[in-house]
Design a protein around this nucleic acid. Sequence first.
DNA 1: GATTACATGTAACATGTTACATGATTAC
DNA 2: GTAATCATGTAACATGTTACATGTAATC
Lengths: 211, 211
Amino acid sequence: MAKRTATTANAILGLLALRDEWSSWELTQQLRRNMRFFWPRAESQIYGEVKALVGRGWARSRQTFVGRRARTSYTITPAGRGALTEWLATPPKPTALECEPLLRVFLADFATPRQLQVAIDQVRADADAILGVGRVVAAEYLAGTAPFQDQVHVRALVFDFLSSHALMLREWADRTEQATASWPRAAPRTRERAAKASIAATRARYPDLYM
Amino acid sequence: MAKRTATTANAILGLLALRDEWSSWELTQQLRRNMRFFWPRAESQIYGEVKALVGRGWARSRQTFVGRRARTSYTITPAGRGALTEWLATPPKPTALECEPLLRVFLADFATPRQLQVAIDQVRADADAILGVGRVVAAEYLAGTAPFQDQVHVRALVFDFLSSHALMLREWADRTEQATASWPRAAPRTRERAAKASIAATRARYPDLYM
DNA sequence: GATTACATGTAACATGTTACATGATTAC
DNA sequence: GTAATCATGTAACATGTTACATGTAATC
């Protein structure tokens, strides 16, 4: 079987296809600003991946200098566009969520109330990080001054996704804070009844999905 | 700085702490059933990690046989409980979402309408996978027959999280399908106006978060 | 009795992260 | 002119996945 192309490389390829020439730094910026929340990668990896693209003939690099310091800029090649097209024809991998705070909630019986609270706060912080970026990006697109203004139609869909995700996180954090506040003083029986009621309520709210 | 303990090991440690003895298989089952959606790991990794726990003195193993075939069962040690407690005192890592379908939406200009639809469908499928498991788990807990019935108070919070997440995915998929359906026939100007309107609407719906 | 699904791993490989090093630019 | 931050990587390491190998139980 043909070796599957790593998806991070394809993400970079996609960026390269959007514009003529990118420096490594611009790539990391773009990744950080726009894609971090649904395609998170360490910035140091970008430098390596884009160099690998050149090795496969999918991009050309050009050296310029800033003072005495080298800067590399990259341009996609026709072969690179071909690789991008081929990848887009493959089925996408499933969505994956990794939530360590929720893992800690899962193990709340071994933690202190304070530690549980910290986990919930982290989820809220995660949401706020998304909303903070969304705020400035939304303003730019609405003002018509965003760097890729011609991509609004697509970016609006991403904005919708991330907004919904962040909102969901915030609302869950609020509900969970509420629900766990009384734990230290509640009898196990009471907690259990409340938990079952919560499950039943969620299920009843979406009968077509859950029954 | 002390070497940080890998979190997957801690997740397993948490399971071991919930009950006396676990076979590797039971661990993989539990991971698959309950934690897959917020802490996804390849099953083959479990076998390796739990063996590493024994190496660090955090678990003991016991060999039994099924026919001529060896089966290993694991029990947490006091040192293991200590390690779990220490880990719970550290700050949790942020939540991470990895959504390749959204990456493809981001690059929709290079894809065919059909490929865009496939990406959206994948998001819906991701949601349905969660809801499918949630359906049976919810039923078990409400019936009082779940394997860890005494953990309802915690599992209800996880159920709430995953339900909300799945619902969010489904609703986004529906909206996005709607929004992109007209793309092939729409003038760029029209798409752009609609996109801006969508961003503005989301922002207006949550003025305290976005303005 | 053959086939399929369950159970139990191992080894090779791919991917990704952290820590570090160092030059350039900006703010003061 | 000096500290802080931006920009540009590299190397070492940790983590994770895929592919494979093989025994066992269920079923038809």
